[in-house]
């Protein structure tokens, strides 16, 4: 079974950004993370780690976005995920 570290990272980055936004805007999701993992941060950490490993194996050898290389998908997803998290908290604070 092949592991694609690039796509594992892309899945992890986007999933984290999505979880950050959803947990803040949709309280039941944050409550679910707390109920399941004792703290929302632990829940996100576990899910991100699992997403990296499982995503990397499930997408191993494949590139679902064939227009772009796996390398580019991972790089821009990681930068995008980091930027999205910062932008979300800035936006939340301002509004």
């Amino acid at each position: 079974m092949k592991f694609n570290h690039y796509l594992g990272a892309a899945v992890a980055a986007w999933l984290l950004a999505i979880m950050v936004v959803v947990a803040e805007l949709f309280a039941p999701f944050k409550d679910f993370l707390i109920a399941t993992f004792s703290h929302h941060w632990i829940g996100k950490a576990v899910i991100v780690a699992l997403a990296f490993v499982i995503g990397g194996f499930l997408l191993g050898g494949k590139n679902p976005i064939s227009k772009y290389s796996s390398e580019d998908v991972a790089w821009y997803s990681t930068l995008g995920g980091l930027a999205a998290i910062l932008a979300f908290y800035v936006f939340e604070f301002i509004t």
């Binding site: 594992g8 984290l16 996100k44 991100v48 780690a49 980091l82 998290i85 910062l86 908290y89 800035v90």
Partner: peptide, 18 residues
């Protein structure tokens, strides 16, 4: 807290992935 710590605590989760 609202911007810096919230961002920091989540950016840190991507550090091991990177």
């Amino acid at each position: 807290h609202d911007i810096i710590m919230e961002t920091k605590e989540h950016w840190g989760l991507l550090l091991p992935v990177i």
